[in-house]
Computed example of a mutant assay.
Amino acid sequence: MTGSGSEPAAEPPVVVKVGGAKAVDPAGAVGDVAHLAANGRPVVVVHGGSTVVDETLERLGIEPDYVESASGVTGRFTDAETMEAFAMAMAGKLNTELTAQFRSAGVDAVGLSGVDGGLLAGPRKSAVRVVEDGKRKIRRGDHSGRIESVNADLLAGLLDGGYTPVVSPPMAGDEGDGEVTAVNADADRAAAAVAGALDADLVLLTDVAGVYADPDDPETRIDAAATPDELAAVEDAAEGFMGKKVMAAREALEGGAGRVVIADANVRDPVVAALGGEGTTIERAALGGDGTAGGDDEAADGQTGEADGDSGPAEPDGGETA
């Protein structure tokens, strides 16, 4: 009791994004999520799956097709055949296996794809602008999309019932004629959308300890950003796959998340450590003003080098279909 008769403020939910790269071990996150859930803190897990997607494509004899946007961002082109493999790998294999891991750890986990209940939804991009041999072209037949809505009521209902949602792409792609197609979406940005919708803290787990001022020197980790200038410094320092994560961090904060931490998945108690300040913490105050300043959409749906191999290609004109 507090002595004044008032209840202490409840901690916000936590969205934990577990990377899908081979270098990211989910075991520590599984144990931490079990600890948090057992202590009554609501947790939503979002996962990527680059390694499993690539392995599935290889087994099926499908050559991955990467394209470059006009802004120089490289991403996967997801044609119909690749989309089948993507859905098999993400929703069929990886989500089921990760949900089983959580349940083995005592977590009442429920596996969901972004299509289930319209959990992650937005317009499908069937055509994207790319650069091939130095020339700008439009490629059609893509199965990717931009998340514009999150079914927060579905997640809140599960959390209120004591369940831990384990979420993965694909998302529900709106074809514009009322039809819905499962399409590729970036897992970092999916986690950002979920965190924003739930006003949650977001922990982006990866295979490095945060954002480094010198990308080659872990000793230069930027510990925190709480002002617009500090956020700008983080964005300037983020290269390669980290640029996508910092972009997702900004989107989460703009959407309503309280803070974002980019941290190492492979340390002991990675989620608890991240929430305690280990990693690069970006506060909502870093947006400045009313906290809704927009970022650069030019590389919005792009996938960079690391991490999950699960995003669509960059669309330099804001994700419009052609």
Rank of each mutant, 00 (worst) to 15 (best):
I62K: 11
D229G: 14
A226W: 11
E283I: 01
E68G: 00
G106C: 05
A27P: 05
L198N: 02
K22W: 13
D236K: 13
A209C: 01
A190S: 14
G240T: 09
G49K: 12
T227N: 04
A293Q: 12
A285T: 15
G178I: 01
A190V: 02
P26L: 03
T280R: 12
V203P: 06
R136C: 00
K137A: 11
P215I: 05
K125N: 02
A34C: 08
D79E: 08
V131E: 13
V46N: 02
D25W: 09
S104F: 10
R139F: 10
A307L: 15
A265G: 11
V211H: 11
L158E: 12
D174L: 04
A100R: 13
V131K: 10
A9C: 03
G288R: 13
I282S: 08
M1W: 04
L60Q: 14
G162P: 06
V24P: 05
G196F: 00
E219S: 15
G3N: 06
D54N: 15
V46D: 05
F241V: 14
V67H: 10
G176V: 01
N95F: 04
A23H: 01
E11L: 15
S144V: 00
A248I: 08
I222R: 08
P270T: 03
A172F: 03
G75P: 09
F86C: 07
A29Y: 03
M242N: 07
G20L: 05
V131G: 03
D296C: 06
D310S: 15
A182H: 05
Y212F: 14
G145W: 01
L98H: 09
V211N: 11
G276R: 04
G279K: 07
A27H: 03
S104W: 04
G279W: 08
L94C: 06
S4T: 14
E306S: 15
D217Y: 10
S126D: 11
L253T: 03
A209Q: 06
G256Q: 02
G161M: 07
V33H: 06
L120C: 03
P313H: 07
